[in-house]
Amino acid sequence: MLDEIVWDEERTDQAEAAWAKLGLHLGFGSIRPERLYNTGPDNLWTLSPTSNAVIELKTGVELTCTGISKKDADQLRGGVQWNTDTYGAVTAVPVMVHPVDIYDARAIAVPQMRVITPAKLTEFKTAIVAFATALAQGQNLWHEEQAIAQQLAFHRLTGDRILATYSVAARQPK
């Protein structure tokens, strides 16, 4: 599953599908609204009863790009609006998987946007592998809710910590 989340413009659908599966494996509600309803973000993870991660994956963007485009920022903004229209009072946390954490000069900032850069994606994948390895080393730990919760917390993979750990705030150009 983690091997499907790669920077490759020919494999964006596979990356989005893997991202949705990853959310489920980590215990979040996880759907692909754009795929299901032809509207909304690429992915939506329910981080808590009051918070959704509204996620746009830009794994097809070249790693050499210099900024988050106006189009990509606008698309995420639309996903945030979709979340509000669909879930009302549930807070939308805008997240973009993108090669850089800085906006293009023409892009309008998305308030509170988080960016999962290649470096943060690598950290995230490493933590997920460590989480799974820790559970696999003990007998039947995959069936023990307390052991799973403990490992999720230890690896900062819980709804209240995952984005603060494995993403950065988007920045305006200087």
Rank of each mutant, 00 (worst) to 15 (best):
V80T: 02
L152D: 06
P94C: 04
P41F: 01
Y87N: 03
D74W: 01
E9L: 07
V100C: 09
G23S: 08
Q137R: 12
R156Q: 15
P99F: 01
T86F: 03
M113W: 00
S30E: 10
Q172M: 15
L24V: 12
P118V: 11
I55P: 04
S51L: 12
R171E: 14
V90T: 08
Q151K: 06
W7N: 10
Q172G: 02
T91H: 10
S69G: 09
R106K: 13
T126I: 10
H25T: 09
D42V: 06
K71Y: 05
E123K: 11
L2M: 12
A92F: 02
G29W: 00
T86W: 01
W45Y: 15
T117W: 00
Y103R: 15
T12Q: 14
L76V: 02
F28D: 13
E123T: 09
L63E: 14
T126N: 14
I162G: 08
I116W: 00
Q112A: 10
T64I: 14
A149I: 07
D8L: 09
A119G: 10
R35G: 00
S30G: 11
A109N: 06
D160C: 05
P111G: 04
P111F: 02
L24M: 13
A18K: 03
D13Q: 13
K71R: 12
A73S: 14
L2N: 13
R11N: 14
Y103I: 14
T46D: 09
Q172R: 15
L163T: 07
Q151P: 07
G138C: 02
D104R: 06
L152R: 07
I68W: 00
T50P: 01
D72I: 00
V93M: 07
D74S: 14
G159C: 09
F124V: 08
S167G: 11
L76S: 02
Y103Q: 12
G40S: 04
E145I: 05
V168E: 15
E34N: 12
L76N: 03
A130S: 13
C65S: 11
E10P: 09
L121T: 07
E16P: 04
E144L: 06
L152S: 02
G60H: 01
V6H: 00
G60P: 06
M96V: 07
K120N: 14
T39A: 10
Q81A: 03
L26K: 08
P94V: 01
D104Q: 12
D101C: 15
S30Y: 05
